[in-house]
């Protein structure tokens, strides 16, 4: 009997790259939802550019994942034929776009992390990851600047934009902890300098984010309870709907070439 989902042999390096690939795909997919609907044409271009950067990154990471795994998976099998419980992205990136403030706050939180993460990963002992990092670092730096400028304008714009931005910050804050967590599978990779310990990035991340939020005349939330689960396949209800759409064609017409 045919199995609907591909299976992935999640050895440490496979799992590690798969997690980053899923982050990039899900966030890129979310941003692509803005195409044709942004507040001005210039922003439609900007958000699409970021989405394209992330999709490109996802493709490279999925290809590398499949290569390391060494079975017969490929970028499309991994993206289109794993179900919710097999996805390994952060909870933050699967959150719905909501309105513009929510999307840009999510971008600020994520790209402030990605900027630091990819810069650190340029020194990875894995040559492929180091090369991917060198390219992504430039892109992430731009993404961070783009979202920072917007958060400043929304926070220090009108009373309405300020309120919307603050609500978004308050709602998404609990999803920012997961980026800095490490589980057992990653410890070995950190020890061999293939991966970096993200906990070390948090102080700088917090400073960057707080500076932007401060300049925006907004407030950093004080609650420190952090949501987790994405890295282990325990997602929010949002991911199922997202994957239904993303995977629709391959699930409806299995095994074909497009």
């Amino acid at each position: 009997m045919a199995i609907a989902n591909v299976q992935v042999s999640e050895t440490p390096l496979v799992l590690y790259t798969l997690r980053r690939a899923d982050d990039a795909l899900i966030l890129g997919h979310r941003l692509s939802e803005w195409c044709g609907h942004a507040p001005m044409l210039e922003e439609d271009m900007a958000l699409s550019n970021i989405a394209l950067d992330l999709l490109g990154l996802a493709r490279e990471l999925y290809s590398y994942t499949a290569q390391v795994e060494g079975r017969d998976n490929d970028e499309d099998k991994l993206a289109y034929l794993r179900d919710v419980r097999q996805y390994r992205n952060l909870l933050l990136v699967e959150q719905p776009n909501g309105e513009f403030a929510r999307t840009l706050v999510r971008q600020l939180f994520y790209s402030a992390f990605a900027d630091l993460y990819w810069r650190a990963m340029m020194k990875s002992g894995d040559a492929t990851l180091a090369a991917i990092a060198a390219k992504s670092e430039k892109e992430s730096a731009y993404h961070l600047r783009h979202s920072s400028e917007w958060i400043i304008r929304l926070g220090d714009g009108t009373a309405e934009s300020h309120a919307r931005a603050q609500t978004a910050i308050d709602d998404l804050w609990a999803f920012t902890g997961e980026m800095f967590t490490v589980d057992e599978s990653e410890r070995g990779l950190i020890e061999t300098s293939v991966a970096i310990d993200p906990a070390g990035l948090r102080p700088q991340w917090l400073k960057t984010v707080s500076d932007v939020i401060g300049e925006a005349t907004l407030a950093v939330p004080t609650n420190d309870w952090m949501q987790q689960g994405g890295r282990g396949g325990r997602h929010s209800e949002h991911l199922g709907h997202l994957l239904s759409e993303l995977q629709h064609m391959q699930r409806t017409f299995p095994g074909l070439t497009w």
Partner: peptide, 26 residues
Amino acid sequence: WITRAPTLRRKAALLAKVQDECGHGL
């Protein structure tokens, strides 16, 4: 159809195409 493009390559190409059209409008 961007969110439902059947492969990652088609997805990226379609997004780039639609973005081009936005640019042309600009």
